[in-house]
Design a protein around this nucleic acid. Structure first.
Length: 1067
RNA sequence: GGGCCAAUAGCUCAAUCAGGUUGAGCGCCACUCUGAUAAGGUGGAGGCUCUCGGUUCAAAUCCGAGUUGGCCCA
């Protein structure tokens, strides 16, 4: 780009972004930026791998934008940042998508299709999805190493998982065992807790009576899963809870039932008893050991029949809810299973992995459990064991992928027994720093404290095979071989394989056997839970252990950043795996952001139809605006509401930046301004106050932005930067230096303004580059020509230059601006447009610094407020003809007046007095002051009430009242003369614009004013008018080539006509 | 059912930790400027600070109980 070249008149994000993409390509911007930092201190960022199904939604887009902004920021600070993106490509979600595509119903279809073919189809599908995600991420300018992402399906990555797992096994943390797990009967695999989604469904709700063996009556249990009744082994009570024996009467017959005392009324009502009587109450502990009969003993002949079966036991999962007695089936429920094992019971589970009753279920054999509910309910009724049967709406777990209702069954699974290292896990949490802190201390810690052993085995195909080989014919966890690398695999297996080329997916490794000491070992057929894949990302991303060149230096990760759903996901799996394998937490700093919600704060969901696609946002407002909008949201734990309005605002902000940037370009070009020669340092002597001020503001803005970045509050950094650009640069500085740019001669002042604005723009663009990488690139290129870096993203992060810092000056100008704003307000109150001069502006200051500031900037204030004269009233002095009231300071009034403080405040606010003294004030509020009440200086501040013709407006900084600006709007002939002249000028300018005249074009003007007095006043300013509108003479005009128009100026009719001089000459 | 977080102007948020007359930006409306012009400036309207209790002279703020939303867990 050539320096100060022509740029688009308007900010057009789409054309601009397209140009920048091409430019990046042409100059290898990304590669060179990375290369530029290759020798820097390393910063190890690890990308949490998105799952490759579906495209990038607004949440993913937010996540990647955040990553990009911090990566760019760190790079600019000189760090060599690891930026390898990752993709999570294994797992059930992809299997189910592929099954859907192929029209498969269950595992049998897959087996017929062939494991190898199925795995290949999954890989193809995942790769397709990956490409879609990559192009989405690239489209909004994320700079990561897209040519070399880590993929969880690559052999070297799978090996990283094997290695980690084998380290955990070395520490004795891998075991096989029975567990009660959530099983998806369709996918025929166990699910991790975090793969279970809860939905509201209708289920049976039954109250069942178990007849007692040694005494009259029965106990009552409640359940929503009738299909677990066949597996009942015992019933649980709370030994400390009060229970009651109740005789209920129904249809003339009576039953004795036992329930918790608190539940008596509810249960009897459910059972539709006409009347009841409490026979006795007893503690749960007194019921322990009572024996009862299995209500389906005949239907299920093989039911649990061991010693101690069908008795009452204590358990801590009992609550005084429903009946206060809990039907317990250790072959199903997790708590039941744990308690059953404690009691030493054998586990009876008559249900297969497909949810169909086995032979052990007797009468129900071959039925799908949920379908058997009806039969079981009917049988219980027939057996007289049904107290009440109804239905209930409740939330019930479903498979996260196929939406099938899960069942709890006990099966053999492989575990990483992280409960054995719970203390270590909790200790390791403290080695990580979280933003926000509560995410770690409240949320994460709670989760880790309660986390059970990690079930890592899945009975599926598309995953990393579990690298465990067991002696043939056995599948227990004794004498196992755990393989850690491909090399080790090649060495130990009986078959001949090449470790460099072998793909270690299930179809390949299933056939491999190991023979050692005369024993043949075969692999356990399971694959890993997909969460184990990403849990090893901190070394998998380095291709460790295959490539050990970086691990030592980089590990653990310096920084990770994900949404709050990853507390139970990646944040946890990495802690678990890191601790099990390495004894350490694999990350130092964690930034946890929220989810992207719709405009109403609801979750975006396809079924609701409120999803905003990122590409639509880009189409409407551009990538830069979208990024800035996303990055303007607080990243620490809070959810973000998407807002089209917010998007538009960001685009408008960029448009203002664009206008600020292109405004000085024509002048700089015209004057041949060369920023390498005319540097800020070279024009130091010629800098005007406003230049020094904007440079000082720039320094404190830089400091503020960097501080926010270090606290992971890029939203606040952006806010500070935008405020600087919009408030300080656009609305104040540019306004103030415009006239210096118009100066046609080469003045030192103009050079100083150029150098200042150049420095400001350059640094602004660098500071904004991490947020808006496109527009900043183009601006930077235009400013630097060939002299800068090839890309703004190679630039160093701007540091505060103490030389230019000047907090006193910043404060002074802040006062001046406050005066100006208040003056403009007062003008409006007085009904005097800015075009009309006012006789004087009086600044009544409360503070000596205001006096200084206004003195130093008197002409600036005078110009801006179009005042003939600026008058100052020193602190402590009073300006004539003012009335006063008072404002109360509640922090003083409260303690002094107690309950009456509010009343006193109101009286003070309403009081009107002639002089600002406490005595006068006390008199005015006499009726609310009691005997001995006294007002003091610090309780009140006086407020002025102004006379006619004069409007006053208070001004100040941040709640501190610094004084009052009065505008004297009384009229004189001189003022009216200029005012009317300005009215004429402005209308002529508008007509010039209508005629599309060039700025330099000369005209002749005709001027006809109805009102004699006004005509005289305007005549006195003919020179001014001619000069401003570039009129050569005033005379009658032939409007064939020009324009004639009659205007209403403050009620006076003014006829104007003009034509260009050139046009007239050609007549 | 339990844990964590949030709730303040139409919208996005600040003020909450350390109690003292609720603020900003955007949007809307009116006015204004006219050599950045699909830009700029000024003003106005707009708040039972989610509800109910408590502590206090004083509560958006502290405490308790709810309601709604989000995430997590069962």
């Amino acid at each position: 780009m050539s320096r100060f070249g022509e740029v688009d008149d308007e900010y057009d994000p789409h054309a601009l972004e397209e140009r920048v993409f091409e430019y990046w390509d042409d100059v290898d911007a990304y590669e060179r930026t990375k290369q530029h930092r290759a020798d820097g201190e390393s910063f190890f960022f690890v990308d949490g791998p998105p799952y490759t199904s579906g495209s990038a939604h607004m949440g993913t887009t937010w996540n990647k934008s955040l990553k990009d902004v911090y990566i760019r920021y760190k790079r600019m600070q000189g760090f060599d940042v690891t930026d390898r993106p990752g993709y999570d490509m294994h797992g059930l979600p992809i299997e189910t998508k592929v099954e859907e595509k192929l029209g498969f119903e269950n595992k049998k279809d897959i087996e017929e299709f062939g494991e190898e073919n199925f795995i290949e189809a999954c890989k193809e599908y995942a790769d397709e999805q990956l490409e879609g995600l990559q192009s989405d991420f690239k489209s909004f300018g994320v700079w990561m190493d897209w040519d070399d992402p880590y993929k969880t399906v690559n052999p070297e990555y799978m090996e990283a998982a094997w290695w980690g797992f084998s380290k955990a096994a070395d520490r004795g943390l891998v075991e096989q065992g029975q567990r009660s797990i959530s099983q998806c009967p369709r996918c025929e695999t166990g699910l991790a807790n975090n793969e279970v989604e809860y939905e509201d469904v209708e289920d049976p709700s039954i109250y069942v009576t178990f007849d007692l063996v040694d005494r009259e009556g029965s106990i009552v249990i409640w359940t929503t899963t009738p299909w677990t009744i066949p597996a009942n082994a015992f019933t649980a009570v709370d030994p400390d809870l009060e229970y009651a024996a109740v005789r209920g009467v129904k249809d003339g017959e009576s039953d004795v039932i036992y329930v918790a005392e608190a539940c008596v009324e509810d249960v009897l009502k459910k059972g539709r008893y006409d009347d009841y009587e409490v026979l006795e109450t007893l503690e749960g502990s007194e019921m322990l050991g009572w024996e009862y009969e299995h209500p389906l003993a005949e239907e299920v002949p093989d039911h649990a029949d061991h010693d101690g079966a069908h008795q009452i036991y204590a358990a801590d999962y009992v609550e005084a809810d429903r009946t206060g007695l809990v039907h317990s089936a250790p072959g199903h429920g997790e708590e039941d299973f744990v308690r059953g094992r404690e009691l030493g019971f054998p586990i009876f589970c008559p249900v297969g992995s497909d949810g169909v009753y086995t032979e052990a279920a007797g009468k129900y054999e071959g039925q799908f459990v949920k379908d058997a509910d009806e039969d079981i309910i009917a049988d219980l009724e027939a057996n007289g064991a049904m107290l009440a049967s109804e239905h209930v709406h409740h939330s019930y777990g479903h498979c996260w992928r196929c939406d099938t209702g899960i069942i709890q069954i006990v099966t053999d699974q492989w575990f990483i027994t992280i409960t054995d290292v719970k203390d270590e896990l909790l200790d390791n949490i403290d080695d990580s720093e979280w933003y926000p802190e509560w995410a770690r201390d409240s949320r994460f810690r709670d989760f880790v404290e309660e986390a059970p052993d990690w079930n890592v085995s899945r009975q599926r195909y598309w995953g990393i095979p579990i690298p465990i080989w067991t002696p043939e014919g056995r599948d227990d966890d004794e004498d196992t071989i755990v393989i850690s690398t491909r090399e080790e695999l090649a060495e130990r297996v009986d078959q001949d394989i090449d470790p460099d080329t072998v793909d270690i997916h299930k179809d390949t490794v299933d056939d491999l056997t190991i023979t050692e000491d005369g024993t043949t070992y075969t692999r356990v057929p399971d694959v890993f839970d997909v969460w184990l894949d990403s849990s090893v990302a901190s070394w998998g991303t380095l291709d460790f252990p295959e490539d050990d060149s970086q691990f030592e230096e980089l590990w653990p990760a310096d920084f990770i950043l994900e949404a709050h759903d990853q507390t139970r996901g990646w944040f946890w799996s990495q802690l678990g795996m890191g601790t099990a394998a390495m004894g350490e937490v694999p990350y130092d700093k964690v930034l946890m952001h929220g989810h992207a919600l719709d405009e109403d704060g609801r979750k975006m969901s396809k079924s609701v139809g409120n999803v905003v696609e990122p590409h639509e946002a880009i189409d409407r407002h551009g990538s830069d605006a979208m990024r800035m909008f996303l990055l303007s949201a607080n990243p620490q734990g809070d959810d973000m509401r998407f807002s089209w309005d917010g998007m538009r605002t960001m685009e408008n902000n960029l448009r203002t930046l664009w206008n600020v940037f292109r405004f000085p370009l024509p002048y700089m070009r015209l004057d041949g301004f060369d920023p390498t020669e005319t540097t800020l340092e070279s024009v130091d002597e010629d800098l005007e106050l406003v230049d020094e001020w904007i440079l000082a503001r720039l320094q404190s803005t830089k400091a503020e932005i960097t501080e926010h970045f270090e606290e992971f509050r890029q939203d606040r950094a952006l806010e500070a930067l935008l405020e600087f650009v919009l408030e300080d640069v656009s609305r104040f500085y540019i306004q103030a230096v415009r006239e210096r740019m118009w100066d046609e001669s080469d003045s030192p002042s103009k050079a100083a303004a150029y150098a200042t604005i150049y420095r400001v723009l350059e640094e602004v663009v660098v500071l904004l580059a991490p947020f808006a990488p496109f527009v900043t690139e183009e601006i930077y290129g235009t400013l630097t020509g060939g002299d800068g870096h090839p890309t703004v993203h190679m630039h160093d992060w701007p540091e505060v230059e103490e030389y230019w810092a000047d907090s006193e000056l910043e404060t002074d100008v802040a006062y001046v601006r406050a005066v100006e704003e208040a003056g403009a307000h007062a003008r409006q109150q007085a009904g005097r447009k800015l075009r009309w001069p006012v006789a004087r502006v009086v600044v009544a200051a409360n503070d000596e610094r205001v006096v200084e500031a206004v003195n130093r900037h008197e002409s600036l204030v005078g110009d801006r407020l179009n005042a003939r004269e600026i008058e100052l009233v020193e602190p402590g002095q009073q300006w004539g003809e003012l009335a006063y009231s008072a404002e109360a300071d509640m922090s003083k009034l409260g303690p002094a007046f107690g309950g009456r403080a509010g009343e006193v405040m109101n009286a003070l606010n309403e009081a009107r007095i002639d002089e600002a003294s406490l005595e006068a004030l006390e008199d005015a509020v006499d009726d609310v002051l009691g005997d001995g009440d006294e007002l003091t200086e610090d309780m009140v501040s006086f407020v002025t009430q102004t006379p006619d013709d004069i409007a006053g407006t208070p001004f100040g900084l941040e709640n501190e009242e610094a004084g009052v600006v009065y505008v004297d709007a009384s009229l004189t002939d001189d003022i009216e003369s200029e005012g009317y002249a300005r009215e004429v000028i402005r209308r002529v300018q508008e007509m010039r614009k209508d005629l599309d005249l060039d700025v330099e074009e000369r005209i002749v003007l005709e001027l006809e004013i109805d009102d004699d007095r006004v005509a005289d006043l305007v005549a006195g300013r003919e020179d001014l008018i001619c000069e401003e509108v570039r009129a050569d003479e005033l005379r009658t005009v032939d409007v064939d080539n020009g324009q004639r128009k009659t205007w209403d100026v403050e009620g006076v009719s003014v006829e104007l006509a003009l034509e260009p001089v050139a046009a007239e000459a050609s007549d």
